[in-house]
Amino acid sequence: MTVETWFRSDAGVRWQFETGALCLDFAYLGGFPEGAFGPASGLPGATAAPGSPRWDGLLVPADLGDWLGERYPGLGQAPSDRELHDARSFRGAVARLALCAADGHTPDADDIDVVNLFAALPDVPPSLAGGRRQAGAGRLRTGQALASVARDAVTLFAGVGFVGEPGRRILRCSADDCGLVFYDDSRAGTRRWCSMPKCGNRSKVRAHRARVAAAHA
């Protein structure tokens, strides 16, 4: 499943980034640690002055409710402060696991435990549209939605491996000044850029200019 995340840079430029996985989409709500990406990543706050507040997509419970509600329309009661706190912990664990997978590092067992804990909860049950009865419609809980995101994370990380695994598909953008992490869900496994219109095109332009300069040297 291709997942599209939209960012707005410090300069106000809005651009699209395909994470390739629902759980990574969630992690990009501010879960990655400061300094994880370069300035060309375009992440809000990536080029902010030292000491300035970092961008955070989960500041208040309504932020969590809006994000989950867009993906799980049957979400009922608004998230509580406690659920927001737990979601932020889960978000950070997914982000750190993604960085470990992309960089070939050993993951922290505590982060794995957090993901497994959320994944063990009852999730959002699948259903077919068109029936006369909609079991559970409008009664989905925040914990169920987060459990579904966690199960996506379990499937993702269990399938890609971490240290020394050949053919890993959780990668960093190949642009030297970007480094965003994504899951390469392409059939050939040849994706190199976080966004072809952004980093991919910039790389092509640079390569073209270098060839022109070499030809006229």
Rank of each mutant, 00 (worst) to 15 (best):
Y28E: 02
C23Q: 04
V149D: 03
C199E: 00
N116L: 05
G143F: 04
P126C: 04
L59P: 02
D103K: 06
S186D: 03
R82Q: 07
C173I: 10
F37P: 05
D123C: 11
A210W: 05
G38R: 08
D66G: 08
D86Y: 04
S52V: 10
G189I: 08
H105N: 15
Q134G: 12
A93L: 01
G35W: 13
Y28C: 01
G74H: 14
D111E: 11
L171E: 02
T142A: 01
C100K: 10
P39Q: 09
F90C: 00
K198L: 02
V181T: 13
F32R: 06
L171Y: 00
A11L: 02
P33V: 15
A158W: 14
D110T: 15
G45V: 09
R91L: 02
L99D: 11
K204I: 04
L58I: 03
V163G: 10
D110N: 15
A137T: 09
P33W: 14
R168K: 12
L22I: 01
M1F: 04
H208Y: 13
A153Q: 10
L140Q: 02
G65F: 09
V154K: 07
G161C: 06
L43I: 08
A95I: 11
P197C: 10
S148Y: 01
Q77F: 08
F7L: 00
R14A: 02
S9V: 03
A207E: 07
L121S: 05
V149H: 09
A11M: 01
P125C: 11
P125D: 08
R14T: 09
A98Y: 14
R169K: 10
A49H: 06
P166G: 11
A98R: 14
H105A: 15
G51L: 04
T2G: 05
A207T: 13
L29Y: 06
A21D: 05
G200T: 14
G161Q: 04
A207M: 08
G45N: 11
R54G: 05
G179F: 09
A40I: 03
R132M: 03
L24K: 09
G30P: 13
R169E: 03
S80H: 07
H105Y: 12
A21P: 06
R172M: 04
R202S: 12
A27Q: 03
A11R: 11
D184C: 05
G131P: 13
L22Q: 04
D113W: 11
G69S: 14
V94F: 13
R82I: 05
P126S: 11
K198N: 10
L22A: 07
A213C: 00
G92C: 06
R141I: 00
D25A: 11
Q144F: 00
G200R: 15
L24C: 09
F32N: 07
E4L: 10
R133G: 01
H85M: 09
E4G: 08
L128N: 11
R206M: 06
F157V: 13
L117A: 14
F26V: 04
A135P: 05
D177Q: 15
G167Y: 12
G51K: 05
C173Y: 09
A175E: 14
V13D: 02
A129Q: 08
G12K: 12
